[in-house]
Amino acid sequence: MSEKIIVRFRAVGDAPLLKSPVFKVDGNKEFSTLINGLKIKLKQCSNLHFYINNSFSPSPDEIINNLYKCFGSGGELQVNYANMPAYG
């Protein structure tokens, strides 16, 4: 059974913007799926840093659905991406 999760990407600082920042993804996949997907979309493979709710970087092996259940709000999971380390 695959549960679709709505993920909203937000650029931090001077990170490149996405044309459409909202994606529906398979909640059973690992967070690394989002990292790799965004790297392809932005055609940028290095120096990208990912955060949930402007706070922390989840481990690449965390399950997207678990992140959504714990940190999602308003029916979506917010993922911030930056060109350099942010948030201390």
Binding site: E30, S32, I35, N36, I52, N53, S55, F56, S57, P58, S59, P60, D61, C70, F71, P85
Partner: peptide
């Protein structure tokens, strides 16, 4: 490299530790 964070030096481990701490704090 798509699955695992590469261990560059002790700072990689330190950063991972602190961001995991932040996640639990947020929880």
């Amino acid at each position: 490299k798509n699955k695992l964070l590469k261990f560059k030096n002790l700072d990689t481990l330190k950063d991972t530790y602190f961001t995991t701490l932040k996640e639990s704090d947020y929880m």
